[in-house]
Design a protein around this nucleic acid. Structure first.
Lengths: 208, 208
DNA sequence: ATGGAATCACCCTAAAAGGGTGATTTTTTT
DNA sequence: AAAAAAATCACCCTTTTAGGGTGATTCCAT
């Protein structure tokens, strides 16, 4: 038999914390090794707990959950962090993932799914709530009705990579003046007059 | 009672196609309205099928699945597209999602999960296979051991937004020369000597 | 056949980039 | 407390780039 999955819970609400602890601890193969009500409290002792998975809330007293992620990762590089929160803001989700979280669940997630997600994350998966997955997928999706032509989009992408006109010309095997011409058209269509503004516009409208 | 979820399957392998069709059609609340072996064949008639969800393979004769996505979206803006394929390449996944797919499943997905995902996607969710979710999450994660300092990372991000030195100076309330100094240090650390190369390096190593 | 898309040309000026070589001060780490 | 790293600013220099204006030509699809 495999050893138990060791779990630490960091969550400020006592009722929720105890609820999860009970729920998970009662499941065969799962073991709650510690619970804390804040990162600041957890940081002192968590290293010796050696959890496989850390369930982390975002809203915490003192260091918030997002900022806690890289610190936890530093203390416990082998542990996986699973965010469990009520927040569905795009910014929070992306920051959490960028900082090193391995999964993101919302608190309305049924307990069976939470249990399953802990296992998934421990096995290197990346569990997400349905609505989170939707946001993540949407973040990838480009605007289907771009005012820009294919060539213009392509050039705008190269501008987004910081390339100069002449570099772009070389990359696309076209003349420098042609690149200029395209950029001018892009500026007119996007109603901007600088690279920075064009990139900003393009990202806002998911053109690139 | 709600009306059935109407599904169209586009898949070139006859055995697989019929297998899915049978499987899904036999499920209460699901109805396979049409099946096609290629996009080119589907394009003629699919508009009148009005499916809620299109199950789409990537590897297809003629127009491939990725290129078919925007075309299908144009024909049927209300339909959701769920990719069902063996491919797990990062590029394919991101292109599929960028082009407008609402979910991405691999073919080893158990049939119950496929059925569930169809419902999810129809309800506006974004289902993904476990391994796909992992790739997607990893794509968000930044390198935890960046050689760059916080300030340098911040400035590199602004460079990535196409901003000039002077714009960056204004944004950060520091002197133009200080920005220069940081950029020089960034170039040394990344071993590059242009904005474009710095951005390329940074993206390759997920520094920004 | 009309219009968008893609291509190229030449006018111009101001701004920006990049290399070199410093210094000072704060902050962090040891 | 000492050393290292980070953040700040200064002035030298030349070449490249950006952006505005105002054209033209060719190709392709509706």
């Amino acid at each position: 038999m495999n050893r138990n999955i060791k779990i630490t819970i960091i969550e400020d609400d006592e009722t929720i914390r105890n609820g999860y602890a009970y729920l998970i601890g009662a499941t065969e193969g799962y073991e709650v090794v510690s619970t804390y009500c804040s990162y600041d409290e957890a940081s002192k002792k968590i290293a010796s707990d050696r959890p496989d998975v850390i369930l982390l809330d975002i809203e915490l007293p003192g260091t918030n959950g997002i900022d806690a992620i890289p610190k936890l990762k530093k203390l416990l590089p082998q542990s996986f962090i699973l965010i469990l929160t009520v927040y569905e803001s795009e910014k929070l989700i992306f920051n959490a993932l960028a900082n090193g979280a391995s999964g993101y669940l919302t608190k309305n997630t049924p307990s069976a799914k939470i249990i399953e997600s802990i296992k998934e994350v421990k096995d290197g998966g990346g569990p997400m709530s349905i609505n989170i997955a939707k946001l993540v997928i949407r973040s990838f999706q480009k605007n289907q009705e771009s005012p820009l032509s294919k060539r213009e989009t392509q050039i705008l992408e190269l501008i987004g990579e910081g390339k100069s006109r002449s570099q772009i010309a070389k990359d696309l095997f076209i003349d420098l003046e042609t690149v200029r011409s395209h950029i001018k058209n892009i500026y007119v269509k996007l109603d901007v007059n600088s690279r920075a503004d064009a990139i900003k516009m393009a990202k806002q409208n998911k053109l690139i």
